[in-house]
Design a protein around this nucleic acid. Structure first.
Lengths: 275, 275
DNA sequence: AGCTCTTATGAATCATTGA
DNA sequence: GTCAATGATTCATAAGAGC
């Protein structure tokens, strides 16, 4: 059995990726610094220059990703001056022009989104997980993320609580209460392109709560054991941790030394390779 | 008490809307013919000319919508040649250029979406509900769509921990519990920008399944009784039916005579006005 | 273990105030 | 006037304590 490598490097992915050969990674999954959001910690990229900042880096992603590989980009545009900014839309168009195929857009539904109230909008409870590919023939292992129906129904009922059932039923006349009988007797089902995950509230030192279940899901879906996963904005190492736990090699890059230290702490020293 | 009017007209909204004055409607909500999707019934708009087809019509929407009004566009890009087509993204950018503010993007999560299996993608379980406005000051009645609150509120309010009185603010700066007294007596919460609605399976004759709960939700959110609602692609009349049920006047337009007939059947003749 | 109760806190946004 | 800092508002989840 091969040893799993977990590489963590501090620096700008634009430079560090130059060290890597073409067609090396099987999956690139990342949650880049959102425009202006982590201003104090990350340097804050202005929304108006976001695309221009991103493109040279995604060019390296395109070069180092295998033809059969997938690039998952978790991102959400913020509100600027009462409107949703369009930099994410422009980024998608620019990435296509760069040579990527825009295969799909998954929705991450954040069940416990940030609270708040404003006169003109509700709480933002979702983020985009954009799927890009180099070719139409990419690896995908749908069976790896199938949901056991029985367990799913059980845990979902437990997690939802009675209130949510009431809420669902009050929203629509039909729905939750009736459908639940349909789940009994089925074994497994394929998921859809909507993911229901809660954000993790335990991360105290890294403001970006990228729940581990999110990279885990995409790693299982798009890679096999022993494959190579890259997160060019790895933050406190959630992707590295997820990859390691699933027996995938990984490279994690971040420009903040403190984050890389935290990431290194998460992976056992005997299993990790530090440079 | 005033009589509610439910106007249904057959024709192209581009022409019919010329009859209406500026600043007339309080809400425009529609699910336009998706590119190429209803080819046999609607004439099928090619994805590559979708924006160009849409813009003259949205110009009429912009003209006839009140400054305090809202335009909700339910749409989802289809898969063309293995990729998500970009015409919806381009449409958003073009509408902004036309003078619209892109205030928000709601997600309609289709709980019981169409079953199916493909080698390279999962079932599509969501659609966009894009919110556009003419000005930053628009009407919004958030209380009209509040939902039952979670169980936690009950137990929490029994015993107010001392932490609730003075909360140690996180480094992000988000506070909670500064004014816990606001919570007393509350049993409802504001929703988020993710809507969980089941698709209706009863409408076999109209290919676009627009569940009645969807226009109902937005009508309650953005209009008052007696306001005017427009659906320029009304199909079999779901929006008209929803508006009538909520005591709102409405205008429904569709180019297919059969749809208008079906729509007319839904609304009681004594209450409707046909032209 | 399994349950209830308590507590911490999160990629937010807008209005207001101060420089 | 324009821009930056501060305050106000709000909900659901998970971890931990207690029994």
């Amino acid at each position: 059995m091969k040893t799993i490598e977990t590489v963590l490097k501090c620096g700008d992915c634009l430079e560090i990726l130059q060290e890597y050969p073409d067609n090396f990674f099987d999956l690139i999954i990342t949650s880049p610094p959102y425009a202006d959001c982590r201003e104090k910690t990350y340097g804050g990229i202005d929304p108006d220059v976001y695309v221009e900042w991103f493109l040279p880096r995604s060019e390296q992603f395109l070069r180092t990703l295998k033809p059969s590989g997938t690039f998952i980009l978790n991102i959400k545009e913020r509100v600027v001056n009462g409107e949703r900014h369009t930099y994410v839309l422009e980024l998608i168009l620019a990435l296509k022009k760069q040579g990527w195929l825009w295969t799909e857009e998954f929705i991450w539904h954040k069940k416990n989104c940030h609270p708040g109230k404003w006169p003109n909008r509700f709480r933002d409870a979702w983020e985009r997980c954009l799927q890009f590919n180099k070719s139409k023939k990419f690896k995908m292992f749908q069976e790896a993320v199938m949901v056991p129906m029985g367990d799913w129904a059980k845990t979902r009922l437990k997690n939802l609580g009675q209130n949510d059932i009431i809420r669902f039923n009050s929203r629509v006349g039909s729905g939750f209460g009736k459908n639940i009988s349909n789940w009994l007797g089925r074994d497994k089902a394929y998921p859809s392109n909507v993911l229901h995950l809660a954000t993790e509230t335990s991360n105290k030192n890294h403001s970006a709560t990228f729940p581990r279940a999110l990279p885990e899901w995409f790693i299982k879906l798009f890679t096999e054991e022993g494959d190579w996963v890259l997160d060019p904005f790895v933050g406190c190492g959630t992707t590295s941790e997820a990859a390691f736990g699933l027996n995938r090699n990984s490279v994690g890059i971040d420009i903040i030394p403190e984050y890389i230290e935290m990431a290194q702490d998460k992976v056992k020293p005997k299993d990790a390779v530090f440079f």
